[in-house]
């Protein structure tokens, strides 16, 4: 995993480096010296039992949680102290495991809020609603509709986000995140609550989005077969520790992973056991 000295990896700085991140909540060490590197353009999966610290790592990367040790680097520059707004402006966007939409706003407005930065316009023209502002506004609306179409939400544009069914909400969170024009997209269990057909659609959608926007994707998902097909590389967390890292094939056959997470069943969910052990601590 270490950079080879021949310079082939040194030539390109990783998009994101997570260096020995630790995160302590009282007596619980939710992350224990976790390190990762994301190369530009890859889909990187993060798996592990319930309570392993996956969401906590997302929170650290997106600036919602300050780590108790370690640091993150964005294109080689430390990101400490930037906060969620600053990190989004750098190019990191995310979705939330527990869905955090602007529920009283319409689907379209949720995406428009995501376009906040693109929506900058001269104040006076905006107040008077002059021609330049209206054209600017039309471009924004068109951009929002493009994203909604991409995520198959265009027909629901005027619905209240709070009234959407579960799967649509998950896709709307992705649309809103994409609206911020990110370079790195963090997806926290985007397939949760979806049926197998929807999960398969989502997998294809994520690949498509990656190609379309030349994005880097970091994704958390419990459904292991989906992750094996989708991801270029995977990391496995267990009790806050990174126990494996590599291609799907490497991770699948890693004895520590089989023991800790897959439980030897090769694709079943070891989540229940992991969570019970986590709570016992």
């Amino acid at each position: 995993m270490s950079a080879s000295p021949d310079g082939s990896t040194a030539a390109t700085t990783p998009l994101l480096q997570v260096e020995a991140i630790s995160c302590r909540f009282g007596g619980l060490l939710a992350l224990d010296q976790v390190s990762l590197e994301l190369a530009e353009g890859e889909i990187f999966g993060l798996i592990g039992p319930n309570g392993a610290g996956k969401t906590t790592l997302f929170n650290v990367i997106s600036g919602l949680t300050t780590p108790s040790g370690g640091r993150c680097l964005w294109r080689g520059v430390p990101t400490a102290g930037l906060g969620p707004c600053g990190l989004n402006r750098l190019g990191i966007a995310r979705t939330f495991q527990n869905l955090r939409l602007f529920e009283s706003l319409s689907v379209r407005e949720n995406v428009l809020v995501g376009l906040h930065h693109a929506a900058r316009a001269p104040l006076l023209g905006a107040l008077l609603g002059n021609g330049a502002f209206r054209r600017h506004q039309e471009r924004l609306e068109a951009r929002a509709m493009e994203l909604l179409t991409l995520l198959e939400l265009a027909a629901l544009a005027e619905q209240r986000a709070g009234d959407l069914p579960y799967g649509d909400r998950r896709r709307l969170e992705i649309a809103r995140a994409l609206a911020t024009a990110p370079r790195l997209l963090l997806l926290d269990e985007p397939a949760a609550g979806m049926n197998p057909a929807e999960k398969d659609d989502l997998r294809q959608l994520i690949s498509r989005i990656r190609d379309h926007f030349a994005l880097t994707v970091l994704i958390i998902e419990h459904h292991v077969p989906l992750m094996m097909r989708l991801c270029d590389r995977l990391a496995v967390l267990n009790f806050g520790e990174r126990i494996a890292l590599g291609s799907p094939a490497e991770v699948r056959t890693d004895p520590r992973v089989i023991e800790a997470y897959l439980g030897g069943s090769g694709g079943g969910s070891g989540g229940g056991q992991g969570s019970a052990a986590g709570e016992g601590r």
Partner: peptide, 9 residues
């Protein structure tokens, strides 16, 4: 949602 607002910049 203040936190979600911050996370979209």
């Amino acid at each position: 949602d203040e936190l979600a607002a911050a996370s979209v910049g």
